[in-house]
Amino acid sequence: MNWKRMTDQAIVDEMGRRVKQLRLQKRYTQKELAQNAGVNINTIQNLEYGRSVTLSVLIQVLRALKSLDQLDYLIPEVVESPMMVMERELKPMQRVRKSKKK
């Protein structure tokens, strides 16, 4: 899937579709998932129908689906190379500056 070419709404729609597929695969009704996640059934419907929900709701739903480990694919952990560790220890980064455009 080419996420870069998708609009924000298209991404939200796709995420909702995937959550729905996962729910069906695990044989949960929307009501069961809502109860297990500690949210209202309307929240599950909103998520599945491509309406925005909070990140904490997504986490609750993934936890209820026993798929919280999927967050590693969403935002992988940054692994520092030994050189990066050494540079950071020598001079810790204070801020990021953008170079001026000419």
Rank of each mutant, 00 (worst) to 15 (best):
100 K>A: 12
6 M>V: 01
32 E>I: 00
86 M>A: 15
2 N>T: 12
24 L>T: 09
75 I>Q: 08
15 M>H: 09
16 G>C: 11
26 K>I: 02
12 V>P: 00
68 L>F: 05
31 K>P: 00
99 S>W: 07
8 D>I: 15
4 K>I: 10
94 Q>R: 10
40 N>S: 15
48 E>C: 11
59 I>Q: 01
34 A>Q: 05
43 T>C: 08
2 N>H: 12
79 V>F: 10
30 Q>W: 08
75 I>K: 06
64 A>K: 00
19 V>M: 11
72 D>L: 04
33 L>M: 07
87 E>M: 15
32 E>Q: 14
58 L>R: 02
41 I>W: 03
16 G>I: 12
30 Q>P: 04
93 M>S: 08
46 N>G: 13
30 Q>E: 13
12 V>E: 00
42 N>M: 15
19 V>W: 04
93 M>P: 03
6 M>N: 04
16 G>N: 08
84 M>K: 15
71 L>Q: 01
77 E>Y: 05
75 I>W: 05
24 L>K: 10
8 D>A: 14
68 L>V: 07
97 R>N: 08
5 R>S: 15
10 A>L: 06
4 K>Y: 11
8 D>F: 11
38 G>I: 05
67 S>C: 01
60 Q>A: 12
55 L>S: 12
28 Y>S: 03
42 N>T: 14
3 W>A: 09
11 I>R: 14
52 S>I: 11
74 L>I: 13
23 R>Q: 09
14 E>M: 06
65 L>C: 02
23 R>H: 06
22 L>K: 07
68 L>R: 02
6 M>P: 02
47 L>K: 06
75 I>E: 08
3 W>D: 10
93 M>G: 02
3 W>E: 07
76 P>H: 05
11 I>L: 12
19 V>E: 05
87 E>A: 14
99 S>Y: 09
